[in-house]
Design a protein around this nucleic acid. Structure first.
Lengths: 102, 102
DNA sequence: CGTGTAAGGAATTCTGACACG
DNA sequence: CGTGTAAGGAATTCTGACACG
């Protein structure tokens, strides 16, 4: 599943160009935990194309007047629904085919 | 067709890590025209994942004792075959369906 | 031919802070 | 709250050259 899209290889200057956001904004959204880049040994931030897409989404929501904590909450809910969905699917499979793999 | 794979966004330090090649080697292969990164306004090189893949291929061929000019020649031949293939295909299509789109 | 390295300078990025609101 | 900015320093990258072979 891990593809190029998820590799953290892009520096903040390029991300700024790709998204149109200022470096200040990008760092601030990280501080608010909306994104989580990796760091090089020296400490420079590295982003993935996934992060770039996410930043564009964030920028849109900010334009709509949404606040950072709201965006973060929204993201957590999305992640939770994902979790529940998987859990339920697993439960149904276990009911239909009990004793499969252990 | 232009996807993430072709976007020139990776700096030479990261490329070095991804490929295991030294920055010196990477710059040298550019000088020998085996790859062609873009430049930022400030002059720093930017590579794509495609370039990274290409560099790994180059590294393998170098290990096999191939020289840079041979690798470059090989690449040109590949590009030429591609050209010819497309031209022939177009010709056959024109024969089968003449006067289609001008 | 292909690659390492020291050298000096320029571009890039980092953090913490002040400012405005 | 979200963002701009000047400040000082550190990490990153660049070029041209010398070296070896």
């Amino acid at each position: 599943m891990k593809s190029y899209k998820d590799k953290k290889v892009i520096s903040i200057g390029v991300v700024s160009e790709l998204t149109g956001l200022s470096e200040r904004q990008i760092r601030y959204y990280e501080q608010r935990q909306l994104i989580s880049p990796e760091r090089s040994k020296g400490g420079t931030r590295k982003y993935s194309f996934m992060d770039v897409e996410r930043l564009v989404e964030i920028a849109n929501k900010m334009e709509d007047g949404m606040q950072t904590f709201e965006i973060r909450k929204e993201e957590k809910q999305r992640a939770n629904r994902e979790q529940v969905r998987k859990k339920m699917l697993r439960g149904q499979l276990n009911t239909a085919f009990p004793n499969q793999r252990k």
